[in-house]
Each structure stands twice: as structure tokens, then as C-alpha cells.
């Protein structure tokens, strides 16, 4: 085994390539995935390698091509459907909710939809209120879906293959702020499951629970807190549905204090769900109330200072931890 350095973007691309090479039923479909090379350049070069039948440019018809992915998956293919951003996925919500997530149950177990849908999510690039939202928590509400949010290069490389092996639909959320991030990973990549969270940093004073684009901010906050003698544990959810309760509760039992960091809006959020589960399952392990750091309740604005103010950042996380520990803000 060797080590190799690559970007998150390259990891996504290599994961698609590997899947196409390993399984001829796999194909990629979406807006500008072919000739353009992908909106975020994830699929650059793949058209040349695999041809237009398997790297399939679609019209701007989110409902149409997501539905086509569902039909093709039912009939034996293993489509990877790319939706440019989660905001656009709302145009395909009917297909994802009413068909992909529902058909197995509605047919009494006869149909499965082994479909993978990838989409970009998250803010931080001054793209304003129609390209910046973090709506993955909405999808995590829906029974029948598995929802992934790789937050590190290694997971971006390793999670696609198990997602394609799942007999039911899997959504992968790639935070667009991560595409340029770089890391050294094992080559060949490790085998990961798509059921468990990962502890990215061990600590004994407080548990920080997060995922996706907020993971790096949270780790940075943990490092800063270490300089203040506060030892934070960082749990990377990775899988937003089903949530890995065991890992979360084990960490809470160890630290007794929790801060949840989520780029979604606070109200009705994934952070709210996690908090509730902790109260339900680990109430008697708590030494203080659970705190949350979420996005401000506002459509993400364009101006940089306002956008920054709307999003979780290292300072906000550090302050929340100090308050939780009673250290003063």
C-alpha cells in the first residue's frame, strides 16, 4: 500500500472512474457532466474515457433525469445522477421523495431503486440565496433514503463504491467548499461502510458533533481549545441517515457535554434531531445543556461579511464550547 495526495474533487472523480471500470452497469448522468467536464470539474476527462453513452449530458430537467435514473436503476442499471446543487434538487423532489424513497415500500418489497444521487451543498462562495443552502437535513428526514456527507478526502474517495452496492437509493452531499481541499490518503483507498460515524479527534471534555463542510472548522476550533486546556472530541457524522447513535452516545458518555455544529438552519434541523436523540438516550450522562452552532435564520446573502456572519465559524464554535463548560464566553 502506498500513500497519495489528492484533492476532494480528484477523489470524487477517481471514485466515479473506479466504479465505471469495475461495473459496466454504472453510468453518470447530469447537467454538464460531459462536454463541460462538470460544473465543479469533478467529471473532467471522463467523457473522453467512457464516451457519451456512459457520461451522459442531460437537458436542464432535474425531475426528468432523476426520474430516468430511477427507472434505469429499477431495470438493472447502476446510475450515478449528478444534480448541480441541492437548491436545484428541489425540482426533482417529487422523484426523490415520491418515487425513489417510496417504491420499495409501496410495492410491498418488490422494487428496489439502487440509485446514487450526488449533489453539491453549502455556502461560503458568495453565491447568494439560490446556490448556497444546506438542505441535506431535509433529505435525512425521509425513510427509504441513505444520506451521506463525506467531509474528508478519504471519504469522498471511498464512499461512492459502497453507495453503489446499496440496493436502495443513496444521496451523497459534497460541500462545494471542500472540492479544493487536499489530503494524503491510502492508495488503494480504505474500505468504508456507509453506516457509521467517525471520531476525527479524541478528547475528554466536550463532544463536538458535525459533518461535511463544518468538519474542518470544528477541528480547527478543537485545536484552538486545546491551547486553552480544553480537550474536545470531534465526531464526524458522515452518514446523516441513518444516524449512528451508538458512536454519538458513546462519546457523550465519555465527555458529558455536547456542542452540535450544523450549517443548516437551526429550526427543525439535523442539529435539532441529534440534540433530541441525546436528550432521549443520554440525558443522565449530561453535565450541561446541549448547545448548537447553526446558520443564521436567513437566506444566505451575497455580501461577504453578511455571508460570513450567517455561517458557523471557528470563533462561534469556540465560544459555544466555553459557555458549555462554564468558562465564560
Amino acid at each position: 500500500m502506498s500513500r497519495v495526495t489528492m484533492t476532494y474533487r480528484e477523489a470524487c472523480r477517481q471514485a466515479i472512474r473506479e466504479a465505471m471500470l469495475r461495473d459496466e452497469r454504472v453510468f453518470l448522468m447530469g447537467e454538464d457532466v460531459g462536454a463541460y467536464g462538470g460544473c465543479f470539474a469533478v467529471s473532467k476527462g471522463l467523457l473522453d474515457e467512457f464516451g457519451p453513452s456512459r457520461i451522459r449530458d442531460t437537458p436542464l430537467s432535474e425531475s426528468g433525469f432523476v426520474g430516468a435514473g430511477i427507472g434505469a436503476a429499477i431495470e438493472g442499471m447502476r446510475p450515478i445522477v449528478e444534480i448541480m446543487t441541492v437548491n436545484f434538487s428541489l425540482l426533482a423532489l417529487d422523484q426523490i421523495m415520491n418515487n425513489a424513497a417510496t417504491l420499495r415500500h409501496m410495492s410491498g418489497g418488490q422494487l428496489g431503486v439502487p440509485l446514487v444521487i450526488r449533489m453539491a451543498t453549502g455556502a461560503g462562495r458568495q453565491l447568494a440565496a439560490q446556490h448556497s443552502h444546506s438542505l441535506e437535513g431535509w433529505y435525512a428526514h425521509i425513510p427509504g433514503l441513505t444520506v451521506l456527507a463525506p467531509g474528508v478526502v478519504e471519504d469522498a474517495r471511498a464512499m461512492l463504491w459502497p453507495a453503489l452496492q446499496d440496493p436502495d437509493p443513496v444521496l451523497i452531499f459534497e460541500n462545494a467548499a471542500l472540492y479544493n481541499s487536499e489530503a494524503e490518503i491510502d492508495d488503494p483507498p480504505p474500505v468504508v461502510d456507509i453506516r457509521s460515524a467517525a471520531v476525527r479527534r479524541h478528547g475528554s471534555d466536550v463532544t463536538l458533533i458535525t459533518y461535511g463542510g463544518s468538519l474542518h472548522k470544528t477541528i480547527a476550533a478543537a485545536e484552538q481549545l486545546a491551547s486553552e486546556d480544553i480537550d474536545a472530541e470531534v465526531v464526524d457524522l458522515r452518514v446523516l441517515r441513518p444516524l449512528d447513535d451508538a458512536t454519538i452516545m458513546a462519546s457523550v458518555a465519555n465527555t458529558h457535554r455536547v456542542v452540535v455544529v450544523d450549517e443548516g438552519w437551526r429550526t427543525g434541523s439535523l442539529a435539532a434531531e441529534i440534540t433530541t436523540r441525546i436528550v432521549e438516550q443520554a440525558f443522565w450522562d449530561l453535565d450541561g445543556p446541549v448547545a448548537r452552532v447553526c446558520s443564521a435564520e436567513v437566506p444566505i446573502p451575497y455580501a461577504k461579511h453578511l455571508e460570513d456572519a450567517a455561517l458557523p465559524d471557528v470563533d462561534k464554535i469556540v465560544h459555544a464550547v466555553r459557555r458549555t463548560l462554564g468558562e465564560g464566553a
Partner: peptide, 16 residues
């Protein structure tokens, strides 16, 4: 809602 799925069924038929 099932029309896009029919397109996908047709796509699978062509590809396979």
C-alpha cells in the same frame, strides 16, 4: 410522476 421513470426504463432497455 411516472413518466420520467418510463424514460429511465427505456434508457435501461437501450443501454442493455
Amino acid at each position: 410522476g411516472h413518466l420520467p421513470m418510463a424514460v429511465g426504463v427505456g434508457l435501461a432497455s437501450r443501454m442493455q
